[in-house]
Simulated assay, not measured.
Amino acid sequence: MVGGLIAGGLASLAFGSVAGAQSIAGFNSNQPVNYAADRIELQDRQNRVVLSGDVVIDQGDLRMTAGRTTVAYTDSGTLRIQRIDATGGVTVTRGNERASGDTAVYDFNRRVIVLSGGVALRRGSDTLDGGRLTIDLNSGLSSVDGRGSRAGENSGRVSGTFAVPQGD
């Protein structure tokens, strides 16, 4: 558990509010959501839309790509997205930060994005690998834990590399 807290702190340091970086805390999750895919299926009775084939979802400067997504919504005269479930090589990018994993859930009510399954974060030459990444769009806090990380030397753990500034 302590390792998870330390890793979460490192994730915040590496991918949070380092000077000059875009902060996820400044993200406006009330922006419109635009989407494109090879195929779109409206399942009106279930209040969902299934997008498949090279799915691209943009919300402001946040982009999610995946092989397939299911968008759940409510309809009270106006459609309101509740949740996006994505599978098939999911990538979330914003600015120079990129996170990828096997699956993702974007919960619009809680304003939280969770990527899981072989999660990899990249920002410049900094790397962070783990099993699950949780991004809280309200607080700007991101945390990574090792559950579900890929088999290998660091299986079940969070690992990474931070670039060291070169002296003058």
Rank of each mutant, 00 (worst) to 15 (best):
I135C: 02
R157Y: 03
R111T: 07
V71Q: 04
T78R: 14
L121F: 06
P165W: 05
G152P: 06
G53S: 03
R39T: 05
G118P: 09
G8A: 12
A19G: 12
V18T: 11
E153G: 11
V55F: 04
D129V: 13
V158I: 12
G146Q: 04
S17G: 14
S143R: 14
S23V: 07
T74I: 15
L79E: 09
Q59T: 03
T134E: 13
V56A: 12
M1L: 14
N34M: 13
V50F: 02
A7Q: 02
A120W: 01
R110F: 00
G118T: 03
E153C: 11
A21P: 03
G88M: 12
G130H: 02
D58G: 08
R45T: 06
D136F: 00
D54Q: 12
D44R: 14
S143H: 11
T127A: 08
D168F: 15
R80F: 02
Y35K: 05
T65E: 09
R98E: 14
S12Y: 13
G156M: 11
V56S: 06
F108C: 03
D44V: 14
V114P: 01
A72T: 15
G95E: 09
N28H: 08
G95L: 02
V55H: 01
Q59R: 11
E41A: 10
I6K: 00
Q22M: 08
G117Q: 08
G118W: 07
Q82T: 11
V114E: 13
D126C: 10
Q46D: 07
L51Y: 00
R63G: 09
G77P: 12
D126L: 07
D126H: 02
V105E: 11
R132M: 10
G124A: 01
T70K: 07
T87Q: 09
N30Y: 01
R83H: 05
Q31R: 06
S159C: 00
D54I: 04
R110S: 01
N28K: 13
L128V: 10
A86S: 01
D38W: 06
D145G: 03
D126I: 04
R157D: 05
S142F: 04
D145A: 09
R80W: 00
D107I: 09
G77I: 12
A19M: 08
T127P: 05
R98N: 10
F15L: 13
D85N: 13
Q22S: 14
G146Y: 05
